[in-house]
Amino acid sequence: MRKRLSSIRPNRRQVFTAGAAVAASTVAASTVPATAATPGGLYGSGTLGSWANGTRAISTETQTRRVVETNGVYMFGDSISVQDGKSLAIRLLNRDGSQMAVNNWASRPTSGAVDALQQWASTYGLPRRILMASGSNDIFDPPKFAAQVDRAISIVGQNRTLFWVDLQVVRTAQTAAVQLADQRNSSWLNMQLYDAQKKYPNLRIIRWAEWLWVKPYRLANYLRDGVHPSVPLGQDARNELIVQSLTQR
């Protein structure tokens, strides 16, 4: 798997032209989709509903402090990360011994993820690597995303690395018009990430969306609903891309 994934280097144009850690404490609530929405909205994808009761996986204080002490990895994500976070933490631990603390919350937009980053930075401090796997729920209001990337960078500072997984959201259960809006808005969010990378040398983008679009059959095989990775195929592929980036020297 590692050789096959690392040998693929899709370019930016392709994606746009195509239109709980091991010791985490998980709090289960009513399950809310990664992109729970109500009709309407300014950008064609609908509007984001409340995420307060979304399923979440948040590491214990003990685990979080241990990650800072051992200079491991913080992860902040949405329902994709609630699903895949434990598997990712195990893969990372097996790869280079790094521990991971997670703060993953279904349906949470990036503003909430950055709020959580700020809270952990103030309470526990930060390790040298921070992973943001957030943005799927920002398709409903894309213009606000860039400011959240800037906020995250300001919290992380210049001496740490901020890793960010790019976005691919096309909810296959929605109408064709909504699916088109989802893809357009995903691309819009990714453009903001790429523009931020030009400003911030310590921002590294993990190009999951581009990896999917290189061979379009992957969209059906590696995603189960146009958003969440299939298990185990998509989960393993996405987590391997993330781990390769986190452990690259």
Rank of each mutant, 00 (worst) to 15 (best):
1 M>C: 08
4 R>E: 15
6 S>I: 07
8 I>Q: 08
11 N>A: 08
12 R>N: 11
14 Q>K: 13
15 V>K: 05
15 V>T: 07
18 A>D: 06
20 A>Y: 10
20 A>D: 07
20 A>L: 14
21 A>Y: 02
22 V>R: 10
22 V>W: 06
23 A>S: 15
24 A>I: 07
24 A>T: 15
28 A>N: 10
30 S>W: 09
30 S>N: 09
31 T>P: 04
33 P>W: 04
34 A>H: 02
35 T>M: 11
38 T>E: 14
41 G>K: 06
41 G>A: 11
41 G>F: 05
42 L>I: 04
43 Y>T: 06
43 Y>S: 07
44 G>C: 10
44 G>R: 11
44 G>F: 14
46 G>L: 01
50 S>I: 02
50 S>A: 12
54 G>V: 01
56 R>D: 09
57 A>E: 14
57 A>T: 13
58 I>D: 12
63 Q>L: 10
64 T>R: 11
65 R>P: 09
65 R>V: 01
66 R>I: 07
67 V>P: 05
68 V>D: 00
68 V>C: 03
69 E>G: 02
74 Y>S: 07
76 F>I: 03
77 G>C: 02
79 S>Y: 01
83 Q>T: 08
84 D>I: 04
84 D>N: 15
84 D>Q: 15
93 L>D: 01
96 D>R: 03
96 D>E: 12
99 Q>V: 09
103 N>T: 12
104 N>A: 15
104 N>C: 13
107 S>Y: 02
109 P>W: 07
109 P>H: 11
114 V>S: 08
114 V>E: 06
115 D>K: 03
117 L>V: 00
122 S>P: 02
123 T>M: 02
123 T>E: 10
124 Y>M: 02
125 G>C: 00
125 G>T: 05
125 G>K: 04
127 P>G: 05
129 R>Q: 03
130 I>H: 06
131 L>W: 01
132 M>F: 00
133 A>N: 11
134 S>F: 00
135 G>Y: 06
139 I>C: 05
140 F>A: 13
140 F>E: 02
141 D>F: 09
141 D>W: 05
141 D>K: 13
143 P>K: 09
145 F>M: 06
145 F>R: 04
148 Q>M: 14
149 V>Q: 03
149 V>T: 09
150 D>Y: 00
153 I>R: 06
153 I>W: 00
155 I>Y: 07
155 I>G: 07
155 I>T: 14
159 N>H: 13
160 R>H: 09
164 W>Y: 11
165 V>Y: 00
169 V>Q: 00
174 Q>W: 01
174 Q>P: 07
175 T>F: 01
178 V>E: 12
179 Q>A: 03
181 A>I: 13
182 D>C: 08
185 N>F: 06
190 N>A: 05
191 M>G: 11
195 D>N: 13
196 A>Q: 05
197 Q>M: 09
198 K>A: 15
198 K>H: 14
198 K>T: 13
203 L>G: 10
204 R>S: 09
205 I>Q: 02
205 I>F: 08
208 W>H: 07
209 A>S: 09
210 E>P: 04
210 E>Q: 15
220 A>E: 13
222 Y>E: 15
222 Y>Q: 12
224 R>W: 06
227 V>G: 10
228 H>W: 02
230 S>A: 12
231 V>W: 04
232 P>Q: 10
234 G>N: 04
238 R>M: 15
241 L>R: 12
241 L>V: 12
243 V>E: 04
244 Q>I: 11
